[in-house]
Amino acid sequence: MLPVLADSVRLADDGVHILDRRVFPAERVWVRCRTVEDVARAVEDMVTQSSGPYFAVLWGMVLAAREAADLEPAAARAYLDRAAARLTATRRTNNHLRKAVRAVLSTVDDTGWRTGAELEAAALAGARAGDERYRTRSRLLGEFTAELLPDSGSVLTHCWADLYLVELVLALGRAGKRIGFVCTETRPYLQGARLTAATLVEMGVDTRVITDGMGAAVLAAGEVDALVTAGDRVTMDGHVVNKIGTLGLAVAAHAFEVPFLAMVQAPDRNAATAADVPIEHRSGDEWLTGGYPVFDITPPRFVTLVVTDRGPFDPRKLADYYREAP
C-alpha cells in the first residue's frame, strides 16, 4: 500500500479533489475544486505542496477542457492556453507545473480533435500519460539514490514530502537496506514534521524529527551518513533550488564532509543559471511580518551529486544528462 500523500490529488466527475496538506495528518480534509480557478487558488494557497501541484495542474487542465467543450475549436484551444497560463503562474519556482501543462497540451494538439467530447478525451489522455511518466521517473530516481546509500545508517532530510521520498523508501526496501531518517521540522508550514515524517512513519521507517536549528549539530556529530533532499529546480550550471533552509544544511554538510544528494528528475535546460529561476516570495502573514522567500539556492560547490532519473551527475557536468539516450 502506498502512503496517503502518494495519491493526494484525484480527478472526479464533480471536479478535482485535493487532500489539504495544511492540516494533514491531524485531519484528512479533501478540498473539492469545481473549476480551473478553484484549482489555481488551491495551489496558490498551498492546499497541496511538493509533487501535489504537478498533479493538480494535470487534472486542472482536464477541467479546462470540460469548461471549453461547448466553444468553437479555436476559442476552446485559446481557453486552454489561458488556463495553462493561470495554473503555471501559481507557483513560479518549480518548473514541474509547466511540464504538466505541456503533457496535456501536446496530446491535445496531436489528436486532431473536433468536438468538445474529443477535446476532453484528449486532455484526459495527456493528463494520464503525464501522471504515469512522473511516477515512472520518480521510481528510477528512487532506485539510483538508494544505490548511493549504505546498507544501514541514516539520512537527514529537509521538507520533501514527495513521490521521490516514497520511491526512495520503496527502493531501499527492495535492496534490503535499513536506513533511518532524520527530518527537520521545516518552517513555516512544518512540512517536514507533519508531511515527511508522517509519510515515513506510515511506511514503517525509523523516523526522528528535529528542529530546523539542529541540523548543523546533527551533521557535526556524525549522526547521519548523507543529506538527501529533493530539488524544486536544478539549473544547468548545478545550482539546487529547494525549500528555504536547504542552503544552510548543505553548507554544514560540506563543512563536516557529509555528502549532499539532491534528487530531481532532470535539470532544467531552460535555466542556465540561478538568475533564470524566479524565487517565490509569500506573504508575511504566514510567518510574522514582511514577505519571505520560500526557496533558497545552493551553489554547486556544496552539492555532492545531483541524482536524476538517468543516474547521478556531478553538479558541474549536468549537460551530460541531455547527452544520454532519451
Rank of each mutant, 00 (worst) to 15 (best):
V240C: 12
V240K: 04
L168V: 13
H158G: 01
M214T: 03
R178P: 05
R128I: 05
G192H: 06
T186Y: 09
C159R: 07
G245L: 07
H158P: 04
A121S: 08
M236G: 13
F144T: 03
I210N: 14
L124P: 06
L163T: 14
R233Q: 15
R133V: 04
D206L: 10
L219N: 11
T184H: 08
G130V: 06
V240W: 02
G153M: 09
R137C: 06
D162T: 00
R174M: 08
R114F: 01
L227T: 04
G180T: 10
T145Y: 10
R187P: 01
L219R: 10
T246C: 06
V169C: 07
L195A: 06
G215C: 12
A125L: 15
R233A: 09
L124I: 09
A122V: 02
G204W: 09
G176T: 15
G213Y: 08
T186P: 10
G192T: 14
A230Y: 13
D131A: 10
E120Y: 07
L156K: 00
G116I: 00
G176M: 07
V205L: 05
T115K: 06
D232W: 00
L148G: 01
V166S: 00
L249G: 10
G245Y: 13
A123S: 12
G142C: 03
L124E: 12
T235P: 14
R128L: 15
A230H: 12
V228L: 07
I179A: 14
I244C: 00
K177V: 05
L124H: 09
R174V: 03
T199W: 00
L200V: 01
A161D: 02
T211H: 11
P188D: 01
L249F: 05
L168C: 09
I179E: 05
V209N: 01
K243F: 15
N242I: 03
M236A: 10
K243Y: 05
G173A: 12
S138N: 08
M203I: 07
S154M: 07
L190P: 12
A123R: 04
G130L: 06
L163W: 14
R208W: 03
D212Q: 03
A123L: 04
A217P: 10
T229Y: 13
M236R: 12
A216P: 00
R187G: 04
L163S: 09
L148T: 05
L119A: 12
L156R: 00
